[in-house]
Design a protein around this nucleic acid. Sequence first.
DNA 1: TAGATTGTTAATCGATTAACAATC
DNA 2: TAGATTGTTAATCGATTAACAATC
Lengths: 212, 212
Amino acid sequence: MLQKKILAAPSIKRLPRYLHIIKQAQMDGAEYISATTIANELHLVSIQVRKDLGITGIIGKPRKGYPILPLIESIERFLNWDTEKKAIIVGAGNLATALTGYPEFFNHGLKFVAAFDTDTKKIGKNIHGVPVLSIKQLSEKVSELNATIAVLTVPSKVAQECANIITKSGIKAIWNFTNIKIKLPADVVSQFEDLTSGYAMLSVKMDSIHND
Amino acid sequence: MLQKKILAAPSIKRLPRYLHIIKQAQMDGAEYISATTIANELHLVSIQVRKDLGITGIIGKPRKGYPILPLIESIERFLNWDTEKKAIIVGAGNLATALTGYPEFFNHGLKFVAAFDTDTKKIGKNIHGVPVLSIKQLSEKVSELNATIAVLTVPSKVAQECANIITKSGIKAIWNFTNIKIKLPADVVSQFEDLTSGYAMLSVKMDSIHND
DNA sequence: TAGATTGTTAATCGATTAACAATC
DNA sequence: TAGATTGTTAATCGATTAACAATC
């Protein structure tokens, strides 16, 4: 199998933003887009965009830029956004409702197939068409539905406990929205999403303006 | 005024995680906490924690670590989490419901005072005790309520338009949850929160496991 | 005391940016 | 042609990590 090239984490995080700009250009009827155009839109420098897009292997044309169609395909392939991935969401609260209703995920292959909760008031209902089930059914349903990703949106107190249930079910990827760094077996990957870190950044930026 | 020291963005983003661990230790009755303890909990190396905590100016004790009480105070002061900040939320959808109901923000000085929307079905109601008002009232209410932060959770199509309304109201800090890089006057700070970048990271991590 | 831990200075590592020839 | 843009190699910058004396 062809070894996929390695890209630095900051570069990977920028790719979705590039993709968004490129798709907009496509909808505007463009066939090519230059690194300069993308960079200007995102307040970056063009050399950074050029370097990041190097991973795609798509050859740009001098004076025109990159051909949009293969560029989109290549970025989506790199991100594995070209294949459907079935996800469960553990904790059927407000954040789960926000995430299941966010169209960007669905558009990029992430399909929520079930939500799990302990609250009997929630079980049996559904959020954005996703059925809410008892957490006791998790393992059974994961096998049945072939889910490969678990999104964790439970209160932090039960985060580790839920993570254990998830890993027992055979799921190897956890998107963790709790503020707990959960302990996982070595073969399980996870992405820690910390909303308070963004708030910290904003607070510090606000303060620094006054101290210039 | 004493010039506040500058800390790199990655360090600032780690501070909330440290704070969380330190507060847990405090609740467990500890008076001191070492960089080693924090690092182990977060799967980091102790030198990194030590370096980051250097910004606080709190002097640690050899063999014991840092005194918890002043350490917490100092981190909170650095992040400006020790003062109340009034925020409005623009777009009263699912994400707004999740954010206004997230206790971590409230605990760190972020108080939502009003939500704004264009949907007449939402206007007049409230989300987690926060009144939903017409976006037409935004400017007036910002002055009246002394809000200093706007959290932007509207559909991307209207993101720039809403940002314009926000900046006209005099607000100088925008926490942007849309996937649009909005254009802002130079004196307005913003924090761009991109949920798809986390999804990109998770997808790539999942893929790399199989290609080892 | 021995040894765990701190704080600081230096070294390393990795990401960003610069330089520039090649191209259409 | 002139000039905007690419792709690649080299230089710079900044964050992380290492080293180590000081301390309790």
